[in-house]
Design a protein around this nucleic acid. Structure first.
Length: 813
RNA sequence: GCGGAUGUGGUGAAAUUGGUAGACACGCCAGACUUAGGAUCUGGUGCCGUAAGGUGUGAAAGUUCGAGUCUUUUCAUCCGCACCA
């Protein structure tokens, strides 16, 4: 009978489902492996990126299960989010109905891929039970002051009608819809991730060598720690008067305290309160005030691309060390959200300040030697024009000047981060409601724990206009949990990245505890950290930073024990490309996994994805190479007729022919390679190639025993990659004995009778010789010389190098 | 601009500690079997050359008996951050 993948695959999928074959064992005694692929958003159908992600993870899970580990390999759905609402607007489907029916369909697709996920631990993040515990964490964070509400300038996406976190703005545009992001003043909830900035940065060291260095670097840059001096500029008396006495000073931050004597002006962000006050007090010319307002209203993206622009504010400050009066400007390149929105400007030793000073003809004052007059110099040197610090190396001077400021009570050494607090408010319906209540007399009050979850109303109108929860006629009206007065529920929902920040703990928690607890510590202690996490590089900052952060917060709030990092090892899989670019509907270059499975079966789909490239690299789709993968499986299936024994045969190696010996050697080479591949390199492509080589070598001989042994081992090796065909054949041929435990290597098969050596002259390969395995060096060299006699004529041999089992190199003159 | 990564046949890719470059596969060429083949099987296939031979891992130099691998310089592509003071 020939290979009929669909029949075999549905047969085994059914058996596995009935047996609950992939549920982890209860109890904590067995050694464990937690293999996790990032869960999908239930958009409707799987795409090839998912197939790749899950094929990689599944191979690992199946490998460790076979080695006797207790394996947790779960899947769920990242089910809240905007696309559900967009579907509601576009097709009139309720987000809940849309989401759950997508989950239904995609679960079936996952099943047809034969992925060994635990079924009992599957959940969707929109399940009320998941929301319930998440809201509990949020309330605890609120109580601890880690979550707070404030009104600030936020990133607003008009297309999505919602606020975005900093991490969710890509090149000034919305990460989801690519719409340019606007700046808007708005209240919202923030989680104090900056409080953990140092720990998040520090603990990246624990991940070195375990996470791709690229991801570590990206996180490090995103956190953006810098150390320097912060101090206040005091406004001159006249300037204070201009401001009506509302301000006496403003704070600046600098990483170059060594250049403090070179300050020739100060610059404020256009949004700075002092600038606003000046405008309000009509202290500026109308045209200037207007221009500044325009500057302040520009989007972050536009501002980043705009030319430097600024205005003299007509006020001055006093230099803290020299007492000099210094003009204050406002400039579009000063960021409002960093370092207090104000800077000291040293045009001689800072590129930006220099450019600005040139443009507006501001004075230059050199304080570090080494540069050329009229040019900016950012290198090292000795301090000049810097009073008692003259002659000091500028790098050393940094600390000395900070110390001086501290001693004089003028300022202090400060650490600043680029990282901003995580804005988690979303002005949308399809998310977890923020469980806070606004009471006129009590202020912000968390919902009582026994009332959780604060659930979404089902009867909702989604039009794309405004916030559906806010528009709902009754939902938001409630009573204050504290004083019982009429109150209003928060109508913002949580960022969906909150859900994916703790799902790794929920999977680990035994499902029969899901009702009674959010995260079970004992379970988490056993299962976490995730031994191998697999997902796309697009989450290098977003999800991976949030999940790391949440882990530390949940630990500090007592929800989990002493865990530092959730994901022990990370593999970032490459994108799936077709015709050189990312598969996408708009480009029309997608491959539908369903069709692929229908035509060739899940095993072929899995084999191809793992064979065509190493997991970390991009995968270029190739229809004929898929055919090739299918052909290999057909061949594998066909060769079952060669097997004559039900057990791993014991073979007398010395009695075999050359071809038979070679076949065995190839089979065992593949076996030898497999440990490294499954446990370290994940270069499945090379393991598959080794199995193909073994098949090719087996095909060149006809010994039943060698065939039986070969099939026994190849099926064992490929089972994690192509589980259906391998299980089917293993069951039929070997009673599945080859799928349990480890197969021992036999070293004997690697010993060859004769060895082929390359012979080179002056490093150029000229011939090959075949020698007995035991041949001594002199014999080898003599044979080599004979073979390459032509190249030795009229030459003198100056050196003879023999590399055992590899080659002979003769150096001649 | 800064940071990171990657450069190997027509294509996807292999290559322990430096030791026969191109395994494995796709494609292509030839042949076999076929009414037919886009099925299957066999053989070939880095490039130049009829051949002998030459040449070849982005480029250049260096270390070495020997370099895809190590060192330096350089070019190209991709990705990330983009005025963070």
């Amino acid at each position: 009978m020939s290979y009929t993948p669909n029949k075999i695959e549905s047969k085994w999928q059914q058996i596995w489902n009935e047996k609950g074959a992939f549920e982890p064992f209860d109890g904590y005694d067995l050694p464990k492996k937690y293999i996790l692929s990032m869960f999908p958003f239930p958009s409707g159908r799987l795409h090839m990126g998912h197939v790749r992600n899950y094929a990689i993870g599944d191979a690992m899970a199946r490998y460790y299960r076979k080695q006797g580990y207790n394996v947790l390999h779960p899947i769920g759905f990242d089910a809240f989010g905007l696309p559900a609402e967009n579907a509601a607007i576009k097709h009139g489907r309720h987000p809940k109905e849309w989401t759950y029916s997508n989950i239904d369909y995609m679960s079936k697709e996952l099943n047809t891929l034969g992925l060994s996920f635990s079924k009992t631990r599957e959940f969707a993040t929109c399940d009320p039970l998941y929301t319930k515990w998440e809201q509990g964490f949020i309330i605890k964070m609120f109580e601890e002051g880690l979550l707070f509400r404030e009104s600030t300038t936020v990133n607003w996406c008009e297309d999505c009608h919602t606020v975005l976190a900093n991490e969710q703005v890509k090149e000034g545009c919305c990460w989801r819809c690519d719409n340019p992001v606007e700046q808007k003043e708005m209240p919202g909830y923030y989680i104090d991730i900056v409080k953990y900035a140092d720990e998040l940065l520090e603990d990246l060291k624990l991940l070195e060598g375990k996470w791709p260095s690229q991801v570590l670097t990206m996180q490090q840059n995103w956190i953006g720690k810098s150390q320097g001096l912060s101090f206040s500029f005091t406004l001159s008396e006249a300037s204070q008067a201009k401001l009506g006495g509302a301000f006496t000073q403003f704070e600046v931050f600098t990483t170059r305290p060594d250049t403090i004597y070179g300050v020739t002006y100060a610059a404020l962000a256009p949004e700075h309160p002092i600038v606003k006050a000046l405008i309000k007090a009509n202290a500026l010319e109308e045209a200037t005030a207007h221009a500044i307002t325009m500057m302040a209203n520009m989007s972050e993206r536009d501002r980043a691309q705009a030319k430097k622009e600024g205005y003299d504010l007509g006020i001055t400050v006093v230099h803290p060390l020299t007492g000099e009066e210094i003009p204050v400007w406002t400039a579009n390149f000063v960021l409002a959200s960093y370092g207090g929105g104000a800077v000291m400007s040293v045009p001689t030793h800072d590129e930006r300040d220099f450019e600005f000073a040139k443009q507006y003809d501001l004075p230059l004052k050199y304080v570090v030697s080494g540069g050329e007059a009229g040019e900016v110099y950012t290198g090292e040197g000795e301090l000049i024009n810097s009073a008692e610090f003259n002659g000091m190396n500028n790098v050393e001077a940094k600390a000395a000047i900070i110390q001086h400021f501290e001693e004089q009570g003028l300022g202090k050494g400060t650490t600043n981060f680029k990282l901003r607090n995580w804005g988690v408010s979303r002005q949308r319906y399809w998310g977890a409601p923020i469980p806070i209540i606004h009471c006129d007399s009590c202020g912000l009050v968390p919902e009582k724990l026994e009332n959780l979850p604060v659930a979404l109303p089902d009867d909702v109108e989604i039009t794309g206009e405004g916030n559906p929860l806010d528009n709902h006629p009754t939902w938001k009206h409630c009573t204050c949990p504290k004083c019982g007065a009429a109150a209003i529920r928060e109508t913002d929902t949580l960022d969906t990245f909150v859900q994916s920040s703790w799902y790794q703990f929920r999977y680990a928690t035994h499902p029969n505890k899901w009702e009674s607890i959010g995260i079970d510590k004992t379970d988490v202690n056993y299962w976490l950290g995730v031994d191998q996490y697999i997902g796309g590089i697009e989450h290098a900052i977003l999800h991976l930073l949030y999940a790391r952060f949440f882990t530390k917060v949940l630990r500090d709030l007592g929800f989990i024990d002493n865990l530092k990092e959730p994901f022990e090892r990370l593999l970032t899989q490459g994108m799936v490309l077709k015709d050189g670019s990312k598969m996408s509907k708009s480009k029309g270059n997608t491959v539908d996994p369903d069709k692929l499975i229908e035509e060739y079966g899940a095993d072929t789909a899995r084999l191809f994805t793992l064979f065509a490239a190493p997991p970390q690299k991009e995968l270029e789709w190739n229809d004929s190479a898929v055919e090739g993968a299918f052909r290999f499986l057909k061949r594998l299936y066909d060769r079952k007729s060669k097997v004559t024994t039900e057990d791993l045969p014991i073979i007398t190696h010395s009695g075999l022919s050359k071809e038979e010996k070679l076949a065995r050697a190839k089979v065992y080479e593949a076996l030898k390679k497999s440990t490294d591949v499954y446990e370290k390199t994940f270069a499945y492509n090379t393991l598959i190639a080794a199995c193909m080589e073994a098949m090719n070598a087996l095909d060149k001989q006809e010994n039943d025993q060698v065939w039986s042994e070969g099939m026994y081992i190849i099926l064992h090796l490929l089972e994690p990659i192509t589980p259906h065909i391998c299980t089917e054949l293993s069951q039929e041929l070997f009673g599945a004995k080859n799928l349990a435990g480890k197969i021992e290597l036999i070293e004997e098969v690697f010993v060859q009778d004769t060895i082929t050596l390359a012979v080179s002259v002056n490093g150029k390969r000229r011939a090959e010789i075949e020698v007995d395995a035991g041949a001594d060096q002199a014999t080898v060299i003599a044979m080599a010389k004979e073979q390459v006699a032509k190249w030795l004529e009229e030459k003198r041999i100056v050196k003879e190098i023999v590399v055992p089992n590899k080659m002979v190199n003769l150096v001649v003159k």
